[in-house]
């Protein structure tokens, strides 16, 4: 209760200035007829599209399906990313062996893998989750490599003096010390995973429920109101995911502050 109160009273109004200002200008120019309202539709069109969408009953099934794929892909990609990043960052052998390939492959558009992904995993949820995982993997792996390699040699020496074993070294020293970069990678991965979730609904062809439907249908039929609504829907849910992640991040970094 007190948590909620605190939350409401401490709600930072400054973040609303930009969107509200934008909304006011948007309403004004469309109402005054300064722009072609068939192209730049008034906010009321977006609200109408939203009403139609929410009453058609597609929202919850779409939300569930998209979020499920997003989280599954994100978790999978991040775990593999941290593991791979630690390995390449710590072991010179792993770095020499896999580094060049990794740094080459990371440039290859995820899109290019689609034919192969659909070959191996079909066009359904498995393929979509893999696609999301792949998009989350790269930033996490990169951040981890960056962070782990940045751990000062001196710190490692100290750890050796204390006779840390490999596991202690990794979990008590290296990963905590590398956590800012890893978390930056995770943060990006969360965004990319979400973008890839929606992208995969567009690119991996098997039809099924998903939040991207509104945007995709709006785009195909050139219904600007529906496109804008769809983007807001996707953006706001992504934002909510991010807020949750940021709270978790603050907790982790605070713990690190105490630990070190």
């Amino acid at each position: 209760m007190s948590f909620i109160q605190k939350h409401i009273t401490h709600r930072d109004w400054r973040g609303f200035v930009l969107p509200v200002g934008f909304l006011v200008i948007w309403t004004a120019v469309t109402a005054a007829g300064w722009v072609n309202t068939k192209l730049i539709v008034p906010p009321s069109d977006v609200i109408a599209a939203a009403y139609k969408y929410f009453t058609s009953g597609t929202f919850f099934s779409g939300l569930g399906a998209s979020l499920g794929r997003d989280l599954a892909g994100f978790v999978l990609g991040s775990l593999v990313g941290v593991a791979f990043g630690s390995l390449v960052g710590l072991s010179r052998w792993a770095n020499r062996l896999a580094g060049p390939t990794f740094h080459t492959l990371k440039h290859i558009s995820l899109f290019a893998w689609l034919p192969l992904i659909s070959t191996w995993l079909g066009q359904g949820d498995g393929a979509k989750i893999f696609f999301v995982a792949l998009s989350a993997f790269y930033p996490v792996a990169l951040g981890t490599i960056e962070g782990v390699q940045g751990v000062a040699r001196a710190q490692v020496e100290v750890a050796r003096v204390y006779a840390f074993n490999a596991r202690q070294l990794l979990f008590k020293l290296v990963l905590p010390a590398a956590s800012p970069q890893i978390i930056a990678g995770l943060h990006l991965a969360l965004i990319y995973a979400w973008l890839a979730t929606i992208g995969s609904e567009y690119l991996l062809a098997k039809s099924g429920p998903g939040l991207g439907d509104a945007v995709i249908q709006g785009k195909t039929a050139f219904n600007v109101g529906l496109v804008v609504f769809g983007m807001l829907l996707v953006g706001l849910i992504g934002y909510a995911l991010n807020r949750i992640a940021l709270r978790a991040e603050a907790r982790v970094l605070r713990w690190r502050g105490r630990a070190s």
Binding site: D12, R14, G15, F16, V17, L18, P19, I191, W194, L195, I198, G199, Y202, G212, V215, I216, G218, K219, F222, V224, V227, V228, G230, M231, L232, V234, G235, L236, I237, G238, Y239, N242
Partner: peptide, 21 residues
């Protein structure tokens, strides 16, 4: 405080939607 919340929402707009706009 002014920019970040908007940035975070806009950053997650899907490319598919950006194109028509």
């Amino acid at each position: 405080a002014y920019l970040f919340p908007t940035f975070e929402v806009v950053a997650q707009f899907p490319v598919v939607g950006w194109i028509p706009l």
